[in-house]
Design a protein around this nucleic acid. Structure first.
Lengths: 192, 192
DNA sequence: ACCTGAACACCGTTCAAGT
DNA sequence: ACCTGAACACCGTTCAAGT
């Protein structure tokens, strides 16, 4: 394993154990066993290292969506499955989730990160399209409906990760919110 | 204006002009004209100062929702109006929005901040309930539906503020996303 | 009561120098 | 090519001391 990859792995590990603020370049370097500024020989700065972590996870999510779409499940089951995987990732790795989907400084990097994020979106959109083609979801533009579902589920996961989802707010869990959303969308009329 | 309030105002101003990372206690103190650690005489730490900013804005949002509900608009118009105000706040003050709705370290403070956040949710829920009572929105539990709408709109605003809403993703704007969401929910059957 | 100044233990980042 | 050590300009936070 090259130093390059070890730095990314160490950053991801620190992210999981202590949140974004725990990912200092000094701590990452120490975990890998190099000097505190060796990371600068591999990444332009701290943001670039975090972006590298994000790219790996976006690629992982993309592959998961591709696998789900390849199954023999019916379209709506694929959608529910994909959303379940997505929510599980947000629940199990809240700090990574926030890095990928809710960090403006990382998103501003563009380039490879933006491309990786777009690929995962495109794969998810393909699942939504299957649902629309089987008339299970409303006949509105695919990209608009995908965007709305994507944003809604992101909102549920983000509120939960941010500790703002309380029973008083009607959202006992992300899973319940997703079920309600999908249930309401599937009940839609408008079958062409 | 007491030092207390001037510190909050200066923090909010720095938040607007330079984002969260620009709100250092030293910069806040300097803007107010006190020594770099005078803020500690008014707030326990940096998080507590940011929480004070958040509480003020939650209260402002709550009052806006109350005003909207007092108008003579029909329920669905009140809902659209409330969401429009909410989205405008997120668009015009992205850093503040993130502080209120997407910052786990601030949310963890609990206490007055959590109470202020809950009050704004309760007022928004009342507007949703009016829509349900007039059978314009589905007859599911009010708090669950409110939570879902709240989370969905949060997701749209957050993705936009995070620079992740691109035309390729179907979400040209928060307003379009809200229109699609509300449109789909209003088309729901299930009138009791 | 409210504020100040020095100090501590951190940061990210840069730079000259080593192998 | 890759790494190290010292250094710089920041931070949040604490503490003793001033008015």
């Amino acid at each position: 394993m090259k130093t390059n990859e070890r730095l990314i792995a160490a950053a991801a590990s620190l992210l999981d154990s202590g949140g974004e603020s725990a990912v200092t370049l000094r701590a990452v370097a120490h975990a890998v066993g190099v000097s505190h500024n060796a990371p600068y020989k591999h990444f332009e700065n701290r943001s670039a290292l975090l972006a590298a972590v994000a790219i790996e996870d976006f690629t992982m999510l993309t592959n998961t969506f591709i696998e789900v779409r390849r199954t023999r499940l019916k379209p709506t089951s694929k959608l529910k499955k994909a959303l379940k995987v997505f929510a599980a990732y947000g629940h199990d790795y809240p700090a990574r989730y926030r890095l990928l989907f809710s960090d403006p400084y990382i998103a501003a990097q563009g380039g490879n990160l933006e491309a990786a994020a777009l690929r995962s979106f495109v794969e998810f959109a393909a699942i939504v399209q299957e649902c629309q083609q089987s008339a299970a979801l409303p006949q509105v533009p695919n990209v608009a409906l995908t965007g709305l579902i994507y944003a809604s589920v992101h909102g549920l996961i983000d509120l939960n990760a941010g500790g703002r989802m309380r029973k008083e707010k009607g959202l006992a869990s992300v899973a319940e919110g997703i079920d309600l959303l999908v249930g309401l969308l599937l009940r839609q009329p408008g079958i062409s």
